[in-house]
Simulated assay, not measured.
Amino acid sequence: MAIDNPYEAPRAELAAPPPAEGKTYGGIGRGLYLGLGFLSWVALGVLLEGLSVAWPEVYDQGSLIIMAAQIAGMICLSGLRIRNMGQSFWWGLALIVPVYGLIVLIRCLAYPEGWSDHRTLDTPGKIIGSLIAAVIILPLVLIIVFTILA
Rank of each mutant, 00 (worst) to 15 (best):
A16K: 01
Y100R: 10
V42K: 14
K23Q: 09
G26Q: 05
P18S: 08
P18I: 06
L102E: 11
D4R: 06
G31M: 00
D60I: 08
Y100W: 15
P18A: 12
G62P: 09
M67A: 07
I28C: 04
G29A: 03
R83K: 13
M85I: 09
M67F: 03
I28G: 00
A2R: 06
A69C: 10
Y33W: 15
A2L: 05
D122L: 02
A72P: 11
R30P: 00
P56F: 13
L93R: 01
F146M: 02
Q87Y: 13
W41Q: 15
W90A: 09
V135Y: 05
L14N: 10
L32W: 04
P18Y: 03
A2M: 09
L36Q: 11
V141H: 01
R107D: 09
G37D: 13
P19E: 00
A9L: 13
D4H: 05
W90D: 02
F146P: 00
D4F: 10
A94N: 05
G26P: 02
A69H: 04
Y7M: 09
Q61E: 10
F89S: 12
I106V: 15
D122S: 07
L140T: 03
G31L: 00
G31V: 01
G114L: 00
S130D: 08
I96F: 14
L121R: 04
G26M: 06
I106G: 05
A94K: 04
V135I: 08
D4P: 00
A20M: 03
L121N: 03
T120H: 07
P17Q: 11
R81E: 05
I66M: 12
Q70K: 14
I137T: 06
E13R: 12
A15F: 10
